[in-house]
């Protein structure tokens, strides 16, 4: 086997309809984020990504995939499974936003309160999460991330390429604006 000087990580799991997608489905630029709800760096990136989607609303769509690093973040796996349970009810992004906006409240008690705030039934969601109904889904995201070269959180892929720059808004705008977009078909 060869030893290239530098491996360029590429997204190996294409975006499909099972993904959580925010923004226009036919947006020319797709950002795939691998994130961990308890990761402070993901928390810091969250408002920047939201603002990016606002400023480039016709250009960019965001895909969110789970990458809980549970040895660092004991609440991350449960948070991811709760987001999936909300997603089953069409509320993934609301739950996603709540989680990133309440990163100091991810313990089970406060998490249930968050679920309730969204108007979902905590008992129902807790039961599903306790059965790990969505464990395979979260694992599937994680495994695909590892195979694609996710090396921490947040890791972003812009198009198929791992984004090596920062996640401040100017960095993100620069990266998105430099991404070649397909010529629209007439």
């Amino acid at each position: 086997m060869s030893t290239p000087l530098q491996v360029t990580a590429r997204l190996r799991v294409p975006v499909t309809e099972i993904d959580h997608i925010r923004g226009p489905l036919d947006a020319p630029v797709t950002i795939v984020q691998y994130g961990d709800f308890q990761c402070p760096f993901c928390g810091a990136a969250h408002p920047n990504l939201a603002e990016l989607l606002r400023q480039r609303r016709d250009t960019v769509r965001l895909v969110y995939r789970h990458f809980p690093i549970t040895n660092l973040h004991p609440y991350a796996e449960r948070a991811a499974e709760v987001a999936e349970a909300a997603g089953r009810r069409g509320r993934f992004w609301e739950m996603h936003d709540w989680l990133y906006e309440h990163q100091d409240q991810l313990d089970p008690v406060h998490l249930s309160l968050g679920v309730e705030q969204l108007g979902l039934l905590p008992d129902e969601i807790d039961a599903e999460v306790d059965r790990h109904t969505y464990g395979d889904r979260v694992r599937h995201d994680f495994t695909g991330g590892i195979r694609s070269g996710v090396n921490g959180t947040p890791t972003l892929f812009i198009g198929d390429h791992r984004h090596e720059g920062g996640v401040d808004l100017p960095d993100l705008l620069t990266a998105v604006d430099a991404t070649p977009t397909p010529t629209p078909t007439p």
């Binding site: 590892i146 195979r147 694609s148 070269g149 090396n151």
Partner: peptide, 24 residues
């Protein structure tokens, strides 16, 4: 040795290369 890779010191090389080597 089946595979070896030197990453720039500041770059976390991730696990994809390792898993590819294990596949091989």
């Amino acid at each position: 040795v089946a595979w070896s890779y030197l990453s720039p010191a500041e770059v976390n090389p991730g696990a994809d290369g390792i898993l590819d080597a294990l596949d091989q």
